[in-house]
Nucleic acid binder design. Structure first.
Lengths: 211, 211
DNA sequence: AAATTGCCATGACAGATGTCATGACAGACA
DNA sequence: TGTCTGTCATGACATCTGTCATGGCAATTT
């Protein structure tokens, strides 16, 4: 079946979610060039995604992972609950292995990095719409070799707060813990990451998509 | 003169530089919808910009500030040297006030944040091409209130290296300085930023576009 | 010529950080 | 039941970090 035939039948109804309006509009222009694809809704925030998808009877949702407030992963979980038949294709700026796993756990059918050639986007949308899966092979490989997140929930919380330079006392207060406990969690996270201090550990954890 | 008339006369020849191929392709699709604008070259790296711009007799270069290797600001400086008549419009993901100043010092005629509505992009390209300037008013205001970069060259170098968690000894070795001197520079930078430690200071400095 | 500023360096001090040993409790699991 | 893991906590120790006083040098400004 050619793209033109498909368009004549019924175009694929796409929703775009990206916090950057310029990128969102540009992606819409790109996809609307395809005769068998139609962008029927756009969201600048993950919170709107589920509602818009239902309203516009969306076939495929293209979700940016990085968004302020409700991010793409959270939006995917909400959308899956609200509209289980809707396919989801995640798009991300950073190739952090941890995101790949999280995306599929959230119900996504595909995962694209933003340095994919633009000519492949439409094909990815079609494949996902047809029930297939889309994964960047290189990213899948690094995801397998790097393995799962070794950090516990508490370690992630503590490390996240340490990122911005908050001292132990402040982290402890914000989590209602003793300072010693926070230092223990930090020490444990530092050990698991193999780094020398909390900052380097937080860096690595962010790169891996662990926090 | 309408856009159609302008297209009949001679379309504006645009170069796109962005490290993310998907975004680059999408922006090209968006701009090519305009009859009076034609994307004649694309670069995924700042180093190629000047050469491509000359080869394709580019009127306006759309440069992403954030690129690995040669970034948009560096590319702008090289392009101005190689082709002084070429207009430059900077595009950025993050609205860091310091970048605005740096962009105009590098010779740019305009500065757009990526959450600008996509409908305004073509207008910005036309205005820059006509010799005008484009600045996001909100960003210009914060740029004025936040003022110039208070950090010295050394302080920026030291703070940059401290960002990723490198200990003082390592920073000192990489800059061929004594450990004490590095700590003095860090202390000075911490004082100037009004933060409590090197990490918070580095965070603020990055947000402001100082490092 | 004098003052200012940035850069480099040293030494000393207080406080923050990373590590380790130890103990307690709850939930999961074989 | 016993074991394991994650969580919380305390105390002690060595090291790292941030600050300050002090001094010297070069370039710029007044």
């Amino acid at each position: 079946m050619s793209a033109a035939d498909a368009a004549a039948a019924a175009p694929i109804r796409v929703l775009l979610a990206d916090d950057q309006a310029l990128v969102r509009g540009a992606l819409a222009a790109l996809l609307n060039l395809e005769p068998d694809i139609e962008v029927v809704a756009q969201a600048g925030d993950g919170a709107e995604v589920a509602k818009l998808a239902v309203e516009h009877r969306v076939d495929v949702a293209l979700l940016d992972v990085q968004m302020p407030g409700t991010d793409g992963l959270e939006a995917a979980r909400m959308l899956r609950a609200a509209m289980p038949g809707c396919r989801m294709l995640m798009v991300t700026t950073f190739d952090r292995p941890g995101y790949l796993r999280a995306a599929f756990e959230a119900g996504a059918s595909g995962f694209l990095v933003k340095d994919t050639p633009s000519s492949e986007l439409a094909a990815a949308v079609r494949r996902v719409h047809a029930g297939g899966r889309v994964v960047d092979p290189a990213l899948a490989a690094t995801s397998l070799t790097s393995g799962a997140n070794p950090l516990t929930e508490r370690e992630r919380e503590v490390l996240s707060r340490a990122q911005s330079g908050a001292p132990v006392a402040q982290i402890a207060a914000s989590l209602h813990l003793s300072a010693g406990t926070v230092r223990n969690h930090l020490s444990s996270a530092i050990g698991k990451t193999g780094e020398a201090n909390r900052i380097a550990a937080a860096h690595l954890a962010r790169e891996q998509g662990w926090i």
